[in-house]
Design a binder for these strands. Structure first.
Length: 391
DNA sequence: GATCCACGGGAATACACGGATG
DNA sequence: CATCCGTGTATTCCCGTGGATC
């Protein structure tokens, strides 16, 4: 348990809520220090990175696996650790075979959902590599690239992980390889995506690592472990974890989202243990198909605001896109015009965050209305959004 | 002045339906 | 009967503006 977690627990205890001690371990997008049950996969990624301990950079690699298979968890945990080794004074590794030391490259992790332009990408990397501040505006993309080239050229190289490639509104493998082509062998890419390599980019020239989905038992372990980190003692029963795991079909994101929802519900009810009905509620609050929570949380603030308000509307306010629009734009201090709210809703539908459901029958004139349904874990989003607004 | 980006507004287009038209 | 038209709605699309920084 780290310090931040200890403090969060104390704060929660003060709130007189018996079940949830800390929401973070239940958060599907939380970064964990030690991913549970992913040892073999970690080993394979480490095998690939092995050359860095000999002083050279590994070739580019494409890591892929189904949603909720722990890709982000593995890569963030690994890069966090490797990065801290680089920053620490003992960044120099003494190899046993040769009495000589090697310098580790810089390890940088970038989420392409957040850094989704060439400029943003260079910015993140540059900020990680050089210790100075890097301007966000007023400097051209080309300028940033050449600054980055200068900086990287004089260093021992960069291993750059780019997560969530080839999603809508993020970056493609083609773009990334093109942008870093001029960097030659000073930057090694580790791209993380969901689809098999051959499907997206026919001739990916380099290695790839496949990450399989979680098995049933392992997923139950994940739930029990995270549950015991975040919940009061014995609040979650093994049979309940089993039920969630079997519903989730190996998807740890969906499973954790359901557990989060269940715990939140039980917490609000003031009971001491999660009830089976809470599990039901938690599962129901995760639609299928479900867009990853990370997609929602990387949306711009105003769009998240609209989604948050959407969750509080009653059903006749959600009868059509237009009435939904009016209801949301009419809320005090929302500060968005109806036209803009409406455009947001259509944009969000395009990204799969909400789904348009057209009414079966038109009553009266005009094109039949359609309403929007959330396609993200509603209880989790609501709780996390409200928590972060109050801090 | 150049640069990137977020934001907001609304025009333009597509669609569904009932009823008028040839 | 086939087609067109008007109306009201849904959906898409484009572009200007302004903040902030170098």
């Amino acid at each position: 348990m780290d310090l931040a977690q200890r403090i969060r627990r104390r704060r929660r205890r003060g709130a007189d809520r018996p079940i949830v001690l800390d929401y973070e371990p239940l958060n599907p997008v939380a970064h964990v220090q030690e991913p549970v049950g992913r040892g073999p996969v970690l080993e394979r990624v480490l095998d690939h990175l092995d050359p860095v301990f000999e002083g050279t950079l590994p070739p580019d690699v494409y890591v892929w696996g189904p949603s909720g298979s722990g890709k982000s968890a593995i890569v963030t945990a690994l890069f966090d650790r490797l990065q801290s080794m680089t920053v620490q004074p003992h960044a120099v590794i003494h190899t046993s075979t040769r009495a000589q030391t090697v310098e580790l490259p810089t390890f940088v992790y970038v989420d392409a959902r957040v850094a989704n332009s060439e400029f943003q990408l260079y910015h993140r990397v540059l900020e990680a590599v050089s210790s100075d501040d890097v301007p966000q505006q007023g400097v051209s993309t080309a300028e940033l690239r050449s600054r980055l080239q200068d900086t990287v050229g004089g260093s021992s190289g960069v291993v750059l992980a780019v997560d969530h490639v080839d999603e809508p509104e993020s970056l493609t493998t083609a773009q990334l390889t093109e942008w870093f082509e001029p960097f030659g062998h000073t930057v090694s890419l580790l791209l993380v995506g969901r689809t098999p390599g051959e499907d997206v980019h026919g001739e990916w020239p380099d290695e790839e690592i496949e990450i399989p989905g979680y098995g049933q038992q392992v997923l139950i372990d994940v739930l029990m472990t995270r549950g015991s980190d975040g919940l009061a003692r014995d609040a979650l029963q093994h049979s309940q974890a089993r039920k969630i795991a079997s519903w989730a079909g190996g998807d740890a994101h969906d499973a954790l989202a359901a557990l989060f929802g269940a715990a939140d519900r039980a917490d609000a009810a003031g009971v001491e243990r999660i009830r089976d009905e809470d599990v039901e509620t938690g599962i129901d609050a995760v639609p299928s198909p479900c867009v990853p929570l990370g997609v929602v949380l990387s949306l711009r603030a105003n769009r998240q605001r609209v989604l948050r308000e959407l969750l509080d509307l009653d059903s006749d306010e959600r009868a059509s896109v237009t009435t939904t629009t009016k209801a949301i734009a009419g809320i005090d201090n929302i500060d968005l015009s109806p036209g803009t709210v409406k455009r947001f809703l259509y944009e969000l539908a395009e990204r799969g965050v909400v789904e348009r459901v057209s009414a079966s029958q038109a009553d009266g004139h005009g094109r039949p209305p359609s309403r929007v349904e959330p396609r993200f874990p509603t209880l989790v989003f609501r709780r996390l959004y409200d928590l972060h607004r109050h801090e």
